[in-house]
């Protein structure tokens, strides 16, 4: 998958906005939106929130987890544990990028949040690499990928699959099947 496709999926996440216009409920295939009333918070998908924000039609309320204190806590937890800790949003990386790039003025301490999220990402990616290496080293057959997010898996998916495929073939060499039928390649 291309990261832009992962981002596209993230845009379906809901976020709270405070509109400055009024509009009746809109009925769409993907779900109903609104009604919109000036000053009244309402939940909309991220893609709409960003579009409205760009046209200065709303203020975005950052998700609860997008908060310096909470993220610091997560970062400490992530550094302490050997396994992947549960993350408050399966799209934390994508949402951080989208919201900070388009609505930084609505998010307190935007720069600190950016750094914190990047720290968390780096810690998790380092862990991911470490576990891939020990996975290969110990010739494991299956792994649990609990709490990993789509974007994290996506950065290493094809590399990991190809590597495992190679290892599988090289392991098959070591344990020749009893019914090894001979095929001809010229």
């Amino acid at each position: 998958m291309d990261p832009s496709e992962v981002e596209f999926l993230a845009e379906k996440e809901m976020v709270k906005i405070i509109p400055n216009f009024s509009l009746d409920k809109v009925y769409l295939i993907g779900g109903d939106l609104g009604p919109f009333n000036p000053g009244l918070p309402v939940e909309v998908p991220v893609w709409l929130a960003l579009n409205l924000k760009q046209r200065q039609k709303c203020r975005i309320v950052p998700p609860e987890w997008m908060d310096v204190e909470k993220l610091e806590e997560i970062r400490e937890q992530e550094r302490k544990e050997d396994t992947f800790t549960p993350i408050p949003s399966p799209y934390y990386m994508e949402l951080t990028k989208l919201l900070l790039n388009h609505a930084a003025d609505n998010i307190p301490k935007a720069d600190e949040i950016r750094t914190l999220v990047k720290d968390i990402w780096d810690t998790r990616i380092a862990k991911l690499r470490l576990s891939i290496d020990s996975f290969i080293n110990q010739q494991e057959a299956h792994a649990k990928l609990d709490n990993l997010t789509l974007m994290e898996i996506n950065t290493t998916r094809s590399f990991l699959l190809d590597s495992l495929n190679c290892m599988y073939k090289l392991r098959t060499n070591v344990q020749p099947s009893t019914a090894a039928e001979k095929t001809m390649d010229y």
Partner: peptide, 25 residues
């Protein structure tokens, strides 16, 4: 040869992510 192919695959994944992160969409 096999290792090179893996290396390239790994780089593709990383490059795609870093391009996205920098907003080159």
């Amino acid at each position: 040869c096999l290792e090179r192919a893996l290396f390239r695959e790994g780089q593709n994944g990383l490059n795609a992510f870093q391009r996205w992160e920098k907003g080159h969409a």
